[in-house]
C-alpha cells in the first residue's frame, strides 16, 4: 500500500521510500526511513496535502509525495 491510501488516525510502518536522492535524504532527516512508524494526522481540503506524525515530528507533505512511500 501507499502512504496516501491510509486513513486519518491510522498508523502504519514504512517499507520503502521510492524517491530521488534529495527527497529521500530529506525524508530520512525527518525520521521517515524504512521501519519507521507513521500516523496520519489529517488532510487538507480535497486531500491535496496531508499531515503525518513520526514520533514527535509533524510533517506536512503532498499526496503526490506520499505516493512514493510504501507502507504495510
Amino acid at each position: 500500500m501507499k502512504l496516501n491510501d491510509i486513513k486519518k488516525g491510522q498508523s502504519t510502518t514504512v517499507i520503502a521510500v521510492i524517491a530521488g536522492r534529495e527527497l529521500k535524504n530529506r525524508f530520512s532527516s525527518f525520521g521517515l526511513v524504512k521501519g519507521a512508524k507513521v500516523t496520519i494526522e489529517g488532510h487538507s481540503l480535497a486531500k491535496k496535502t496531508m499531515e503525518i506524525r513520526i514520533n514527535k515530528t509533524h510533517i506536512a507533505l503532498r499526496s503526490s509525495e506520499a505516493e512514493k512511500i510504501e507502507v504495510t
Binding site: R26, F30, I59, A60, L61, R62
Partner: peptide, 8 residues
C-alpha cells in the same frame, strides 16, 4: 519542488 516540511 516537493512539499515536505516540518510543522513545529
Amino acid at each position: 519542488e516537493p512539499f515536505v516540511m516540518e510543522m513545529p
